[in-house]
Amino acid sequence: MKKQKEMKNIKSTKNVIFYGLIGGLAAVTLASLIIIIGYILINGMSHINLEFLTQEPRRMGKEGGIFSVIVGTLMVTGLGILIATPIGIAAAIYFTEYSKEGKGVTLIRFFTEILAGIPSIIFGLFGFAFFVIFLGMGWSVISGGLTLAIMVLPTLIRATEESLKTVPMSYREGSLSLGATKWQTIIKVILPCCRPGILTGLILGIGRAIGETAAVMLTVGGSLRLPSSIFDSTRTMSVHLYVLAAEGLSMEKTYATAALLIFIVLLINTSANLISSKLGGNNGN
């Protein structure tokens, strides 16, 4: 009897430790998220004001705002997404609508997955060797945009594919049976069903592009001047944050830049979540 009771005690102590450990570690994870975001927002938000957003940086970013950096970020990110979106959507269409099972397709898919795993510094080296040097584009918005386009491609393909897969087969049959061609079916029936999924992928791609630093640093350069064309060098917010932090130029501006980045990331995540939960189930049936 006594022995049994002891066994039970040991068991319950073990249980307490086990659940305590799991709960504790999960709590630590959540806490680190809150601390990181909270710390940066609290220290940075107060330094974000109209002047910071609309003035050009002075004395290497020590004073003034980050207007040219914001413009640079928009240009590089925008160009990257603009190039990647049609290619990514088309690639996803190929995988779900056109490709037949076979060795070739398996290989293409495999390399698409591989592309997603390549670290950003490698993209940076590649972009530098290929776009900047080999194609002679120099440190420029276009070099960075093309590099980013390749980087976000897997994200876009994956998101589009996931949502193409949720379109019921009966829609395709319905359209084809009316004498529509495959392409008409895709454009007029299938893609409209996927708008929320594609949009979510797009937003996540933008998030990845905005936060990207290493690859951008090696392909766009670090000029603080307002770029006048896509062939100019510029600086994105992430690169700016790195330079400020590494060189200790101005704590105030560094915190403000970091907070702005975090703010954008929060915005992006929230809107992606909203889109996928609000519009996710519109395929009916």
Binding site: Y171, G174, L178, C193
Partner: peptide
């Protein structure tokens, strides 16, 4: 095939109107 399907329409087992 397109001409064929224009002339030979089809109605399916489960109603499949487009989400339009």
């Amino acid at each position: 095939i397109i001409e064929l399907r224009k002339k030979v329409g089809m109605v399916f087992q489960k109603p499949n109107p487009f989400p339009k």
